[in-house]
Write a protein that binds this DNA or RNA. Structure first.
Length: 273
DNA sequence: CTGTTCTCCTGTGGGC
DNA sequence: TGCCCACAGGAGAACA
């Protein structure tokens, strides 16, 4: 399931093929994604160049002269670049192809269709999906002082707070579990119980696990395929996620699993307090 | 505003 | 080998 590192890896992977290229054709085979794809997308974006591609949270944002094409990979989505004369016949879940003037195409693949392909002609900071997002976890405005201040009134579990996009973006279930393990903090602690020094460690560990995953080229459970079509190989790096009943890699205590906010949560009772 | 539950969807894997 | 079904999950929407 693409988390921030996979999205960033995807952005970096496709950028050389699409930036400054003009869109020559758009093929929508399945418009029913999380939200329906606007039915005249072809008319809107054809003949426009992609000026840049950026990432905000887990959204990929293609800047065009008349607006923004926004994509979200949901939990099973992937983007892949193909040479137009070598692209295989579209598979079952290849929902969108965008063709470019340089002879390449960008293919959006998403079996579970939790992803999205959206057109927005307004100012980005006014987009309803973007305007309430918290800071990027790898940017300077996500820091110990900020986290300490935000958490001090929150009774909910710290893991839920970390996964709330209004607090900080891009920390999904896997990395919330991993960061809390490395920070030595139990996932069900009330957020307001975290001391300033714990917030400082947590910020650092969130940064570390995300940075390591980006550097590793993105993690992979079974759904993620990066733009070169290779599976990532980060999943064996998980210390707690998916490791229920396995010995902790630090102290060998069996990893526990519980449900917090309908989501699987993993932790070590010896390493986390 | 806070907290909780529901919802979209399909591939996977366990049980029999 | 095949069938059935619970489960997984990002995150907005709906509801209490």
């Amino acid at each position: 399931m693409p988390e921030l590192p996979e999205v960033e890896t995807t952005r970096a992977g496709i950028a050389p093929f699409v930036t400054q290229q003009t869109i020559t054709d758009v093929i929508v085979r399945q418009p029913k994604l999380r939200w329906p794809i606007v039915d005249n997308l072809h008319e809107i974006i054809s003949h426009q160049p992609v000026l840049s591609i950026q990432r905000r949270a887990k959204y990929l944002i293609f800047q065009l002269p008349t607006g923004y094409l926004m994509m979200h990979l949901g939990m099973s989505g992937s983007l892949r670049i193909w040479s137009q004369d070598q692209a295989p016949a579209p598979q079952k879940h290849d929902h969108v192809d965008i063709l470019f003037s340089n002879g390449f195409l960008l293919r959006f693949h998403d079996p579970r269709r939790f992803g999205a392909v959206l057109w927005f002609a307004g100012a980005l900071e006014h987009h309803p999906l973007l305007c309430h997002l918290g800071p990027e976890p790898l940017e300077a405005d996500f820091n110990a002082a900020y986290l300490t201040d935000k958490l001090k009134t929150q009774k909910r579990a710290i893991k839920l707070a970390l996964m709330d996009n209004k607090l900080v973006v891009g920390v999904g279930n896997i990395y919330a579990n991993e960061a809390l393990f490395h920070a030595g903090i139990l996932p069900d602690r009330p957020a307001l119980s975290l001391q300033p020094d714990e917030c400082e460690i947590l910020v650092e560990k969130i940064r570390q696990v995300l940075r390591a995953a980006i550097d590793a080229g993105g993690s992979s459970l079974r759904d993620f395929v990066n733009t070169r079509g290779e599976n990532g190989h980060f999943q064996q790096e998980h210390f707690v996620y998916g490791q229920a009943n396995q010995p902790c890699r630090i102290c060998h205590t069996p990893i526990q699993k519980t449900i917090i906010g309908q989501r699987s949560s993993f932790y070590c009772t010896h390493c986390q307090h």
